[in-house]
Design a protein around this nucleic acid. Structure first.
Length: 581
RNA sequence: GGUCCCGUAGCUCAACGGAUAGAGCGUCCCCCUCCUAAGGGGAAGGUUGCAGGUUCAAGUCCUGCCGGGAUCGCCA
């Protein structure tokens, strides 16, 4: 049930009838006609821009269209008033029964209230995290993981067929470095002094890997040359790191559908095939790149490289796919991997990158555009940095000083639910401050608490009501006499609830799950306000002594707020609480 | 220098191209014999970095500047 789309349908059919009787010319495009909540409540319940949008193409004054439209809309029993205002807005007032009915519908739909079919079952692949398997996940990865997972949940709720995917970067030089670093820890486990040379990973987290290597190989690798052990140690260490990462994701409440391996692309011919496909399109050539303008590197030398003509698909310069020794650059397997996703039949691709990979966006889009013939859109969301604070003081991360903050650290201190919610209280492309003390604060400037507190209050009402012998089952509440919800503040609450399905669609259309978090804050604010009005006006208290029917109507309203909070939190991957402790 | 992101109240940030740009914090004033005051109401606070353009309508889209960040051929 989406009241806004219902009323938009009504507006469109009214416009159709105006076309039918010749008031409006035929052939108008109604796609820009919108029905939305007005900024100011005094403007009514819903507003439509129809008259302004259609004035020019129809060759009529906005006023004339609005007046005619108002006449048609007034004939509908749901519409109580239709006034032209401002430059041509048509402000609609709707009958109270509509909002009361919405409460009933919310309770009846429960977890499905707000679910949308706008995705039409299209298959979308959301690739996120994709952290290198060379160490534990840190705070930056955490934000990307939370964002990607929430986006996946949002899109699924809005009717897409979603696949969550992790691309394991296990094919490049960095996993060789991992192997050499782990080998030193293996020597350490055998009682030798490790030599953590410059360029190796110094972290303690490799000590258990060294011990596990010893358990498997004893001392048999100690005096062997790298050529003998590199491959095995690399695979072993990578597997252990991935196990760690999978566990970190689990702790955070993130589950992937597919793990794809870069390494697995090598030797299968997939990379060669992808490049060959591009070559057939005349998008691969041998050439020399111009040096970057203005900032020429010291060691710049013109050299012939194998280049992808990404400029043919919107990039600024062509990009190399092969190193001078003939091996692939990191870009080549990425092309093959995205080609693989296209060939698996996805209708849309979404990549979630750290903001430091922003320079990679155009070439990746160019590759997907070329390899899918422009059929598959790729949206890339960049995740900005997380700045850590403790007591308002910046908390510097440093591997050397041992203050490297991992995902595990954050979740252990703040909890998965708080971490997830806070990570979604900023747009993805804005930097995020994460203060270990503030996120646990129980006050209204902490949005997690504020929303949870609203839900706890609602459940408190339900407990009290049940103690008083009032039946609070959803089915009973939905059958209550909701016409008793007549107060302005109660109707305002219902209107906020009515915005939820619309909000889901807006958030999904823009791939912006943070909108859900902000909406929940607004919803909670409306509820806290209503709660406090009960202090001033006893008629607004949810439980009315001696009047079960009225109590049930008011409790139905409160319960429907809780339904929406729970549905919203589910999209964020946060568990609602029923009682504050 | 090229590219991308950001610039909105003193601070931290919202606003699918819609009306008088909204919240929280901070400042000031109010509200608990009553379901959790862990909350609520009100006041003050703005040339949405600057200048043009498109549009019935621009914080939002386009162009050019200014400021901050990221990034820039064999690292992923």
């Amino acid at each position: 049930m989406n009241l806004f789309s219902d009323i938009r349908d009504l507006v469109i059919s009214a416009l159709d009838s105006l076309v039918a009787d010749g008031t409006l010319p035929a052939g108008l495009d109604f796609s820009a006609v919108a029905v939305e909540p007005p900024r100011d409540a005094s403007h009514g319940d819903m507003a439509t821009n129809a008259a302004m949008v259609l004035a020019k193409p129809a060759g009529l004054q906005p006023r004339a269209i609005a007046d005619a439209l108002a006449g048609r809309l007034m004939a509908d029993p749901r519409v109580a008033g239709a006034d032209v205002a401002g430059p041509g807005f048509l402000n609609l007032r709707l009958v109270p029964a509509l909002w009361q009915g919405l409460v009933r519908a919310t309770l009846a739909a429960g977890a499905d209230y707000g679910r949308s079919g706008m995705g039409k079952g299209l298959r979308v692949n959301v690739e996120f995290v994709s952290a290198n398997p060379t160490g534990p996940m840190h705070v930056g990865h955490t934000r990307g993981a939370v964002f990607g997972d929430a986006l996946a949940r949002l899109l699924a709720y809005a009717g897409w067929d979603v696949t969550r995917e992790y691309y394991i970067n296990d094919g490049g030089a960095q996993v060789d470095v991992l192997a050499r670093s782990a080998f030193e820890r293996y020597r350490e486990a055998n009682g030798l002094e490790p030599e953590i040379r410059e360029g190796l990973y110094p972290g303690d987290y490799l000590i258990p890997v060294g011990e596990a290597l010893k358990a498997k190989y004893g001392d048999s690798l100690l005096n062997q040359p790298e050529s003998v052990w590199l491959r095995d140690v690399r695979d072993f260490a990578t597997e252990m790191m991935m196990a760690e990462i999978r566990n970190d994701l689990k702790v955070l409440g993130v589950e992937m559908d597919v793990y794809s391996s870069e390494k697995a692309l090598y030797g299968t011919g997939e990379i060669e095939a992808a490049i060959a496909t591009l070559r057939d399109m005349d998008l691969i050539y041998e050439g020399v790149l111009e040096p970057p303008k203005g900032k020429e590197p010291e060691d710049w030398e013109p050299r012939v490289q194998t280049l992808f003509r990404s400029t043919a698909h919107g990039d600024d310069v062509d990009r190399p796919v092969q190193k001078s020794d003939g091996s692939w650059t990191y870009f080549a397997p990425d092309i093959a991997y995205h080609y693989n996703k296209v060939k698996r039949g996805f209708d849309q691709l979404i990549d979630i990158f750290g903001a430091d990979h922003g320079g990679y966006v155009k070439r990746m889009k160019a590759a997907v555009s070329a390899l899918s013939g422009g059929r598959v859109p790729l949206d890339i969301k960049l995740i900005q940095l997380v700045k850590l604070y403790k007591n308002g003081e910046p908390f510097k991360m440093s591997k050397r000083a041992g203050t490297f903050v991992t995902l595990r650290d954050v979740v252990e201190q703040a909890g998965a639910d708080v971490t997830r919610f806070v990570m979604l209280t900023r747009k993805n492309d804005a930097a995020l401050d994460f203060d270990f003390d503030k996120v646990l604060e129980q006050s209204k400037d902490n949005p997690v608490f504020y929303v949870q507190y609203a839900n706890a209050r609602i459940n408190s009402v339900l407990r009290k009501a049940r103690e008083a012998g009032i039946d609070c089952a959803d089915a009973t509440l939905a059958a209550a006499d909701l016409s008793r919800l007549g107060h302005e503040a109660e109707i305002a609450m219902a209107k906020k609830i009515a915005e939820w399905p619309r909000l889901v669609e807006i958030a999904a259309r823009n791939n912006e799950p943070h909108r859900v978090a902000f909406y929940l804050y607004e919803l909670a604010s409306e509820f806290h306000g209503l709660w406090n009005k009960g202090n001033d006006d006893g008629a607004l208290r949810f439980i009315q002594d001696g009047d079960i029917a009225t109590s049930q109507a008011k409790i139905a309203l409160a319960r429907s707020v809780s339904v929406v909070i729970c549905n919203g939190l589910a999209i964020l991957g946060v568990a609602p609480v029923e009682e504050m402790r």
